[in-house]
Computed example of a mutant assay.
Amino acid sequence: MEPAYTIYRKSEFIETDTGNKVSRRSLISGSQNIVLGGKTIVHSNCTIRGDLRRAGPTHQASVLIGRFCSLGEASVLRPPYKTYKGVFSYYPLKIGDHVEIGRNSIIEAASIGSYVRIGANCVIGRFTIIKDCCIIEDGTVVAPNSVIPSFSLLSAGPPAKISAQLPESIQDVIEAQSKDKYAKFVPV
């Protein structure tokens, strides 16, 4: 079953030289500290907090997002933080290629690998590491400091748990779906 075309008004999105499509109704704070890899869609009311970064002389991006990603409506991406020896610091949030984040999800992970699908209404706790080729179902809450192994299917429930092992072909499936979704996101 092929996904349908998603039609959007060209005036409501900014398209960058690298093919990123960013909604004018998204909230991008600290854009100089956010790196979009290319062909990423940032939907309306999505919040990306690039203004939250580690203080110091080295200039390091606080949010790094790979290619062919889709950041859902009203989702929030912000770098994780902690206090260590009395010093409050933010750490980078790194997201790989071909990652889909569902609507109304909150992400404070340290790292999300490539070929990952996060459902709607999910909460990914601070400093969580999600390895490559994972699917997280709608409504899942992942505890802070969790490490999700590659090829895991996480189901919702108190607490979230790995409910199945995904086949190795999931990488090809998610890559094809993310490229198709981008190709079928067309202006009027």
Rank of each mutant, 00 (worst) to 15 (best):
A4Y: 04
Y5W: 06
I7P: 04
E15W: 02
G19R: 01
S23C: 11
S23I: 12
R24Y: 09
Q32K: 14
V35M: 05
L36S: 02
L36G: 10
G37A: 06
G38M: 11
I41E: 03
C46I: 04
T47P: 00
D51P: 02
G56V: 11
S62R: 07
L64C: 13
C69E: 00
R78Y: 00
P79C: 10
P80R: 14
Y81F: 14
T83P: 02
Y84A: 06
V87K: 13
I95W: 02
D97G: 07
S105R: 04
I107Y: 02
I107L: 04
S111W: 06
A120N: 15
I124T: 08
I124P: 02
F127V: 03
I129T: 15
I136P: 03
D138W: 01
T140M: 06
V141Y: 11
A143D: 14
S146W: 07
I148F: 11
I148P: 07
S150G: 07
F151H: 14
S152A: 13
P158H: 13
P159N: 07
P159V: 08
K161F: 04
K161S: 14
I162N: 06
Q165G: 01
L166P: 12
P167V: 14
E168I: 09
S169N: 10
S178P: 00
S178Q: 15
V186I: 15
P187T: 11
P187C: 10
